[in-house]
Structures are given as structure tokens and as C-alpha cells.
Simulated assay, not measured.
Amino acid sequence: MTAEAPQSRVGEEDRSLEVRWIFPGRLEAAVAGWFGRFPIGTESREDSYLLDPRLPGLSVKIRGGRALEVKMYHGSPGILEVPGRARGRLESWQKWSFPVDSSDQYGGGPPAWRPVHKIRRISHFSLAGGQIAARASTQVHEPQCDVELTEVSTIGQHWWTLGFEASGPADLLRTAVEATAQLVFNPPLPRSAEPGLAESKSYQQWLLGG
């Protein structure tokens, strides 16, 4: 695999605060309709995650065959809780992305790399003046949060996931996630059980059976 130098400055950090829930089975129409009340963009792609060797604290993947993405885990600042509607483990990450030549072969085959096909619905939220709204931010230093509802398939099995990812000023990341979650979970997710800590995990933790 050939990786080119990133366009951003070497060592420039791209930090995020994230929470994700992953559920078995196919995405229900009622859940898709619940999320569809916000403006969404859609994307279909296949990511390949490095599972062997295990790299504690790191997540490595080939994103859509076009970029090598390395994420470093910086711990959890606590629990996101929307009373009676959702509880999830917040995770702090730092990310680097490098363009790759899609004609290269990467990995070493199963079980080193696990391909995961995704159909993603994405909505963008920004926090300005203390108010959260469903819109993409045009300000680099304005806190924002992307929310994705994604259908996932791998090794013949189907799953779906709901994830929040906040970016912007470090001291406002938690505020952005919490404000976005309050908006998104009102009304609550149309399921018999609320998203809880048992379903709250990163893609890497899920793929490794954590």
C-alpha cells in the first residue's frame, strides 16, 4: 500500500468526541422514518478495518478504498445521558487521514482486514449562540455535530448503527454532542428498548467482539 503525505500540516490534530450504538439486524423502516425528519445526505461505501494485529488504543481502516484513516483513542470523559431515551459512552479520538492509491492491495487478506459495507444517512448540526440547529456549519471554529444512521453488513450479517461525532473547539465538544442528542432523541427512537451502554461501542470494539 502506498500512502501519500497528507494535505494538512504534519502533526495537525483532528479531534472529535463521539458516541455510537450498534444493533443487530436490518434497519427498521420506522427508525429510518424517525431520522428522516432532518435534512440528510446519503452515501454508500465499503471500509476495511485492520483487525490483526490488534493495536490497543488505535483504529486503522481503509475508508472507501481512497484513504488510510488512523484514529487514536484518548479515553472517555463520561456518559451521555438523555433521561429515559438514551445512554452511551462518550469517546475522545484524534484522527489522521492519508490518501492511498486505490489500485494497491492492502492487508494480507482475512482475518487481517475486515470489509464492512455501509449505507450511511448523515445529518449535520451546528451550535451557534448556544442554540443547536440542523445545518452544516460554514465556520471553522464553530462547534458542530454530525449524526449518522447507517446500515451495516459484514460476513453475511446485517447490523445498523446510530452515531454522533462532534468537532470544533475542544471545550465545546461535549456541549455540542449533548445539545444534538437532546434534539435528535425528541421524540425518542421508535424501539421497544432505549439505546443503552450495552450497545454503545466503536466500530473497532464491535468488530473485535468487545
Score class of each variant (00 low, 15 high):
Ser92Gln: 02
Gln94Ser: 11
Lys95Cys: 00
Lys95Met: 09
Ser97Gln: 02
Phe98Thr: 04
Pro99Cys: 11
Asp104Ala: 13
Gly109Gln: 02
Pro110Ile: 01
Pro110Ser: 07
Pro111Asn: 02
Pro111His: 14
Trp113Lys: 03
Arg114Asn: 10
Val116Asn: 05
Val116Gln: 01
His117Leu: 13
Lys118Gly: 03
Ile122His: 11
Ser123Lys: 04
His124Lys: 07
His124Gly: 12
Phe125Glu: 01
Ser126Ile: 01
Ser126Pro: 04
Leu127Ser: 04
Gly129Asp: 08
Gly129Asn: 10
Gln131His: 13
Ile132Lys: 10
Ala133Phe: 13
Arg135Pro: 04
Ser137Met: 09
Gln139Gly: 14
Gln139Met: 11
Gln139Glu: 10
Gln139Arg: 13
His141Phe: 13
Pro143Cys: 05
Gln144Tyr: 11
Gln144Glu: 10
Asp146Asn: 02
Asp146Ser: 12
Glu148Ala: 11
Leu149Lys: 00
Thr150Asn: 09
Glu151Asp: 14
Thr154His: 09
Ile155Lys: 13
Gly156Val: 09
Gln157Trp: 15
Gln157His: 10
His158Met: 12
Trp159Asn: 07
Trp160Ile: 05
Thr161Lys: 03
Gly163Pro: 06
Phe164Asp: 07
Glu165Gly: 06
Ala166Thr: 11
Gly168Ile: 00
Pro169Gly: 05
Asp171Thr: 02
Arg174Val: 03
Ala176Val: 02
Ala176Lys: 00
Ala176Leu: 09
Val177Phe: 08
Glu178Ile: 02
Ala179Leu: 03
Thr180Met: 04
Thr180Tyr: 00
Gln182Thr: 08
Leu183Glu: 04
Pro187Arg: 10
Pro187Ser: 11
Pro188Phe: 13
Pro188Leu: 06
Leu189Pro: 05
Leu189Gly: 02
Pro190Asp: 08
Ser192Arg: 14
Ser192Phe: 11
Glu194Tyr: 09
Pro195Ala: 09
Pro195Ile: 00
Gly196Cys: 12
Ala198Thr: 10
Ala198Phe: 07
